[in-house]
Design a protein around this nucleic acid. Structure first.
Lengths: 215, 215
DNA sequence: GAGTAGTCTTACTGGCCAGTAGGTACTGGA
DNA sequence: TCCAGTACCTACTGGCCAGTAAGACTACTC
């Protein structure tokens, strides 16, 4: 019987360190996104990356360091994608819209990254969640600033919590979209835009919804 | 040196099975919420519950079964709390409002439950996420039905995705609230209600937000 | 006070996996 | 052609933890 699995045939080709590191990080994001931090093993990651375990440790350090590096890299990519997408110097609604578009485009094109960021990182306690919360906080702050600019009524806590809700709606809708991927990113983004903007638009005009007396 | 830790002093008091099972589930929810599924050990859970490990296995089965049982119990509690809270036979906005109130009240009073449901369960692949998605799906379906009733324009995919966004906004805002707990549940709930209802209210009246031509 | 059913324990096994020791091959310069 | 440096490897160790074997204690019944 011949070898039917093309498992790492012996020694891997020599490559400069920078290239290998990128390969390893790609593999790590893939594995972490599929299995989660704990269930992912360094053996599997090195396997997917096409190298041996000691290389992993030599280049990226411990499992925790590796994971943190993944998070930082993917978070940075996401935030940069959004920053590049937002058209500043335009009306608030356009800024929000372009930001949403950039966000959904990124998620559509980088599902694994999104999995690692949204699911895995936040569910591990400790420094990871902190790292992630930091990025999330920056996103919320960005949206909050936008809201504060657009309306006098949204200030401080008010703006922060509305922004948190909005960012959460985006995250959740992105998840839903991954399970129902038949629609293009633009359609999904537009739907969220309709929901939140027209809602917030009314707030801007001073409308307030009053809870009725309890029965 | 005397024993300074009141660790399980020898044999635990005999208790009927139903009571023990409840204690164990309480302990399990606590530990899972703090550490996550993988990092939580059966030793720690049995310790917190005040019994020995074999009891755990005798009563609740394997670690996975125990976790699934926790999820099912907490999901059921949450859904029942919401169902009890919603005032049916009233206008759509009142139904939504009462549902939101019930949801935020539950989260405020059962933080550990919420942690297990929202963070831990969804980040473990396999049967857990399925179980959780099931409940989540029911919540989304409920909201979607409400939206469909209220408007002709929201149908099928449209309603489903809007509902997903709304539920996600609620989840996210609940998380934010846990980190900023100075405000009462009602205030936070009202804020979300303003955001989403007035937004959706415009959709009902036929308003549509058009994305501008890209630059 | 002997039987029995259910509660509870100590003390172990076996597997998985993070991390390492101690090498071998390749490449490029002197 | 030798050397230095870097890329890369196989093969192991040690700890943690899910799950279990084997039995001990209690309470209730007749």
């Amino acid at each position: 019987m011949q070898a039917d699995q093309p498992v790492r045939a012996g020694r891997a080709k020599r490559l400069p360190r920078a290239v290998r590191e990128r390969q390893i990080l790609d593999a790590a994001v893939d594995v972490f996104s599929r299995l989660g931090f704990h269930a992912a093993s360094m053996d599997e990651i090195s396997d997917v990356a096409g190298i041996s375990k000691p290389m992993l440790y030599a280049y990226l350090g411990s499992k925790e360091e590796l994971f943190a590096t993944c998070i930082r890299r993917e978070a940075t990519r996401l935030m940069e994608a959004i920053a590049d997408g937002v058209e500043v110097d335009r009306a608030a609604d356009v800024q929000l819209w372009t930001g949403l578009r950039a966000f959904f485009d990124f998620v559509g094109e980088n599902r694994a990254s999104w999995q690692v960021l949204h699911r895995q990182a936040s569910s591990q306690g400790g420094p990871f969640a902190a790292e992630l919360n930091d990025m999330r906080g920056r996103a919320i702050g960005l949206v909050a600033a936008l809201l504060e600019n657009a309306s006098e009524r949204a200030r401080g806590q008010e703006a922060q919590s509305l922004a948190a809700a909005l960012v959460g709606a985006g995250e959740s809708l992105a998840d839903w979209w991954l399970d129902n991927p038949e629609e293009p990113a633009a359609v999904v983004a537009a739907r969220l835009m309709n929901l939140v903007w027209l809602g917030f638009g009314d707030l801007v005009e001073g409308a307030v919804w009053h809870p009725p007396a309890r029965r």
